[in-house]
Design a protein around this nucleic acid. Structure first.
Length: 313
DNA sequence: AAGTTACACAACCGCGGACCT
DNA sequence: CAGGTCCGCGGTTGTGTAACT
């Protein structure tokens, strides 16, 4: 029944690999391949290592055509876009970057890229937002009219914003999202979500209460709302975001939370609608707002990154 | 120069699904 | 079908080293 045990954990070596071990493993695999059995491999290769350890060493370090060293801007962009779309599924992300391993990308994200993004966003707080150059890259809606008169659908599977009061549905996954001017925005209720992982929603001014800021916590600025609700007037519409086809745990939690707020009698004034995979957007719209400049009166036009959207006045 | 801290990256651990008997 | 292991994945930890005090 079953297979033989993986390895005798008491007798296997752990820790950093020596050059001798590397050459033994490399030589063996060059001659024999992995044989589809990592567990048996170390014994055959004369290594006192666990099969798992051998596999990891080979895949992440010894395998031919592995790229080491700095990531290019293109690679950064791909990682950011994919992380925004599918989350921390490093193996899938790695598949899009030839020569890079999931471990490499994961380390790079955790140690550099995430910090780089946070640094980019850091000045975006209540005190300094007015001076912040990032604003030029954000969609700026200064008047309720702007989002009352536009309706954008990311092309995902969720279609709740057919309601007459639903005004803006915008996917912003992987993108610089929406900048909402609090002075006007405080007169309505809203529920907002920026999308699954990008640089989502911003408020010029803080607006009443926000709850749920799951994604936002790693940005650490009060004026940044990355997935959150606002309910500003009791007798007004509750606002809602539903993430269709939630793709990861955070999105699922978020979707569930959003669902609990939904009130059919008072459909949302503002809703941000997701596509197929995540809260607020999917790959079909992952660059919708990215690096775009908007004035107050500009329409919400998807850029080339959006392949599935529709636009309705 | 020595000690401490921060950082980058390699390696390990544990889990869940696939697979085997 | 049940019970067990294997494999691949993502999160976490460990280690070496550079930077700082």
């Amino acid at each position: 029944m079953g297979r033989a045990p993986c390895c005798d954990k008491a007798s296997v070596k752990k820790g950093p690999w020596s050059p001798e071990e590397d050459s033994k493993l490399r030589e063996y695999i060059h001659k024999n391949g992995t044989g589809g059995n990592w567990i048996a491999l170390p014994h055959k290769a004369g290594l006192k290592r666990c099969g798992k350890s051998c596999r990891l060493r080979w895949l992440n370090y010894l395998r031919p055509n592995i790229k080491h060293g700095d990531f290019s801007d293109d690679e950064d962009r791909i990682i950011c876009d994919l992380f925004a779309t599918i989350g921390s599924r490093w193996s899938i992300i790695a598949a899009q970057l030839p020569g890079r391993t999931d471990n490499d990308i994961k380390n790079y994200w955790n140690t550099k890229l995430k910090k780089k993004l946070m640094h980019d966003l850091q000045p975006y707080n209540h005190q300094s937002s007015k001076k912040n150059q990032h604003r030029r890259k954000l969609l700026h809606l200064s008047s309720p009219h702007d989002y009352y008169s536009h309706h954008y659908s990311s092309g995902g599977s969720y279609g709740s914003n057919n309601s007459s009061t639903s005004v803006l549905s915008a996917a912003a996954a992987g993108s610089r999202g929406l900048l909402l001017n609090g002075e006007h925005h405080t007169t309505i209720t809203s529920c907002l979500d920026s999308g699954g992982g990008g640089l989502g929603l911003y408020f010029d001014e803080l607006c009443a209460t926000t709850t749920s800021s799951v994604h936002g916590q790693w940005l650490g600025t009060e004026s940044f709302v990355f997935g959150g609700f606002q309910q500003l007037l009791e007798d007004h519409h509750k606002s809602l975001l539903l993430a269709a086809g939630a793709a990861n745990q955070m999105d699922q939690q978020y979707s569930a939370a959003a669902s609990s707020y939904y009130d059919e009698a008072k459909p949302p004034l503002v809703s941000l609608m997701g596509g197929g995979n995540g809260a607020g957007g999917t790959s079909t719209s992952s660059s919708f707002f990215y690096d775009s400049s908007y004035s107050n009166n500009e329409r919400l036009e998807p850029d080339n990154g959006d392949k599935g959207g529709s636009y309705i006045d």
